[in-house]
Design a protein around this nucleic acid. Sequence first.
RNA 1: GCGGUUGUAGCUCACUCGGUUAGAGCACUGGUUUGUGGUACCAGGGGUAGUGGGUUCGAAUCCCAUCAUCCGCCCCA
Length: 452
Amino acid sequence: MQKPSNARGTRDFGPKEMAKRNYVFNIIRKHFEQFGFQAIETPAIENLSTLTGKYGDEGDQLLFKILNSGDYLSKLTDQDFQEGSKKFTYKVSEKGLRYDLTVPFARFVSMNRYDLAFPFRRYQIQPVWRADRPQKGRYREFYQCDADIIGSNSLLNEAELITLFQAIFNSLNLKANLVINSRKVLAGVVDVLGMNEHFVDFAVAIDKLDKIGWDAVAKELIEKGFTEEQCAVLAELILFEGNNLAKIDKLTSFFNGNTQGLAGLKEIQDVLGFIQQNGFVNTNIIFDYRLARGLSYYTGLIFEGKAIDIPFGSIAGGGRYDNLTTDFGLPNMSGVGLSFGIERMIDVMDALNLFPEIPFSGSKILFAYFDEAGQTQAFQYVNELRKLGIPSEIYPEVAKIKKPFEFADKKRIPFVAVLGEQEMAQNKMNLKNMESGEQELLSLQDLMEKIK
RNA sequence: GCGGUUGUAGCUCACUCGGUUAGAGCACUGGUUUGUGGUACCAGGGGUAGUGGGUUCGAAUCCCAUCAUCCGCCCCA
């Protein structure tokens, strides 16, 4: 006997949790399909070579690696052992669990390039795994819901994804801001300062602004080689507050003709222009040139969704990537994607009490009886109802009548039909409404009419 | 990977300085009620105090290790 427990950072979902999860999944799936995205799935297990090098050093460390089958030590030499665990890992492991849905998607597109209709829009709702240290809102196994459009450079695609974001969050009654920026804007800022080679340092530091404040960010920048003067110039830009238009003006003068920066700004303007036409209220789309995002493969517009009423980190994220499929032998295939962090969305909705009353038992009616004769009759009736598409169940045992009632109460089944001697003598049943407590004597015909 | 926190019944939590048989609420089981759940009353089951070691006459309590948890860092959805 061992004490049962979940593996670290993983969770079970009982019927109650599943009802909530499916509620959210179904809404997201419905919108994905409304926007013309097609479902695909890829395996949980990928070749490790597919995954490594795509998420940076940190990401490689967070990959779950699968030990080779068989005698995985047989071909190793003493030297392999001495090279340390980092290199050693790749000698005993050739497969790993997927870390996100975007990289496997890039592999998929690359492999199926001649069969897909481009621009290809796919959605994918599957779990991913990260060997991260679990915390609140951070799990080692969690679902991602991704929508991507690949094979088109048009900024209309960015606008489509933003519209999709608005549609989904509207349907869920979840208030969120979608912050957008362009990697090109960030690159432009760095370019103006003449610090091109420090782009990543800059992006990583600036991304923490919300959390640690400008002073700490500036300190980090200086540690990475930026000068006090450069930070002073940056401060003037970074600390600027204003609406989307004001920020665009501010940047235009800051860029002072810098081509890269202005190209990024044009992207933002074009996308915002589209969004104004989409019929959704555009107030929750915020251009913020301080948004950086970690994943290294983004090259153009980047998105990040954040809940408004509660601080919870990002609950959606994405962006444009120009070179993801290049590693898989397919260059010039630009794509843009948006990933919905469904686990966090559910956590946020739970915290804000946004879930409607969701029945977690599908059955409308439970049949109860006292003896074998009733059981036989009930079995007949329950299947009649099922044929009509009414979800129904039958209590499986002859027991005290209290039992099926308690059972129905616990599962919140709204009706219980009792088949006793008296009822069956008239070819009827006693139907109890579990909420009101009312009871009435009905034939199967009456019942079908009533519950339909 | 680093720093801290917590770990007692299925769940939420008590147990004074280390001292008898570790308690409560909720949940569960049975009964009051052999044709009725959600209310009430009565009774009952359930614990190797995360795990392993140490100190002590004696450990839930003190010490060490380990595992898990939550919080922060890194990073991320």
